[in-house]
Write a protein that binds this DNA or RNA. Structure first.
Lengths: 253, 253
DNA sequence: CGCGGTTTTGAGAATCCTCAAAACCAGTGG
DNA sequence: CCACTGGTTTTGAGGATTCTCAAAACCGCG
């Protein structure tokens, strides 16, 4: 019901049993009883506009969200406005877990597209841990996965050159997007701005632009309609020296 | 029994009930039953030399470790040898959780000092999740805490200048060391090399050295006996624009 | 057509890097 | 006790990368 800053609760509601994401090959199969429990936990859905701020650094959030559709990014700010994008959230990802599980958020989350979010009560995590050890384990697995992505990002920002970093980021996001069928399973458009890339990689906008041009010259990507198009995914991975994502199926909560 | 690469199992053994770390103010109090359970899980202790590699990227590890004494760092390598240090582990920290909970390690861990490690079977996590939801919750909390530290490190490497980064890192490690009484609770010596700082911050060794000199000129730190001495902790935090660690007590498993 | 957001370009400057050598320092063996 | 060794820190110099500033071009949208 509440509408603020682009957030609005939706009237429609997907049952977890019929979740459109579950059939995707990237997710592990769940027991019927697990699905029923998750469905019980699910408090509703939230539709947010592109550009809306879903979570705010420094504030407590009573909710956790799972991305049903659309995508977003997590970021932190320095007091003078410098921004660092930490990671992206695509369909199936859990948002808000990082907030110390309880407590103040240490980062903000902003939507990169219109999104649909499943809403969970942070409090109900306790019930989940008490009654569904398998799901509790999944939560930990999800946290650990986020950590591995951060490790890789840190390696990138710390030790890869500008062009390697950029290649890595585009290949990385492309892989994740493809895995959840963001572009109908095709590996194509990534709809964000060069400013986002710059803020993810710790580069200036101008230098990011020049680096992207080099990738275009090498026919690895194209930039069209305000977004990045991957032309040679293997080439990007090779340039970055990146192995690609693991192929394990992940849980969806 | 086995000795390899500086790893050797120790004959002595601390009972978890009498763990020397638990009385420290940074850790939350545990129930007697929880302690008994953890003690049952603990498979033994491992003593490792300074410089020993505790975990290796790309390999599976059947074990998880909790640092009893000493400290270490987690890192990743690029194929040409460039190294990125991801984070440090001090007493009380859990090592090896990041390995996808199961599966191949995505990073290596190397001891910065002689260490004593409590050894746990990775397999026994399942039992923990099944029978002790409170402890399972703690594991997730620990993973989420690591994530928050990584977020902050990423912000640092991506968006802070060399001198801000260095100030941040030293203040950060100093705070953590103090919280677990690494120097008897005093906030003083941090025993590592400038190469470690460089590889943590994504800087070259030479530039790191010159940056450290600037911090010395400003009387924020001193460099003595192969280690860093903090002179003005507040000054470091202010220079870095860093708030400091949260003051919540953390679980110790 | 005008507007705001985004991308592109150019130019000069600051930061940070590499290379190379020297200084320093603790430990080892003669 | 001294010379030697390997690891670490320091210094200098030149160069590459990346940054900031500023302006123009582009583009979808109202």
């Amino acid at each position: 019901m509440s509408i603020q800053n682009g957030l609005a609760s939706s009237s429609r509601r997907y049952d977890c049993e019929n979740c459109p994401l579950r059939p995707l090959p990237g997710f592990r199969k769940f027991e019927r009883s697990e699905l029923a429990f998750i469905d019980k936990l699910k408090k509703g859905e939230l539709a947010v506009d592109k550009g809306a701020t879903v979570l705010v650094e420094g504030r407590r959030s009573a909710h956790l969200y799972t991305v049903l559709s659309g995508w977003a990014f997590r970021y932190k700010l320095l007091s003078d406005g410098r921004r660092q994008i930490l990671n992206y959230a695509v369909p199936g990802d859990l948002i808000g877990l990082q907030g110390g599980v309880m407590g103040e958020m240490q980062h903000s989350v902003e939507a990169l597209s219109p999104m649909l979010l499943c809403v969970f009560e942070r409090e109900s995590l306790h019930e989940l841990f008490r009654n569904h050890p398998g799901l509790a384990y999944d939560i930990t697995w999800i946290a650990s996965r986020e950590e591995r992505m951060l490790d890789e990002n840190l390696l990138s920002v710390g030790r890869r050159s500008a062009i390697e970093r950029t290649a890595y980021l585009i290949a990385f996001i492309g892989s994740r997007a493809k895995a959840v069928g963001l572009n109908g399973g095709r590996l194509t458009r990534i709809a964000f701005t060069q400013q986002h890339i710059a803020d993810t990689l710790g580069l200036s906008l101008v230098h990011t632009n020049k680096t992207i041009r080099k990738l275009m010259d090498r026919k690895l990507i194209a930039w069209r309609d305000g977004g990045c198009e991957i032309i040679d995914h293997e080439g990007l991975k090779q340039l970055a020296g990146w192995e690609g994502l693991g192929k394990e199926r992940r849980p969806l909560i």
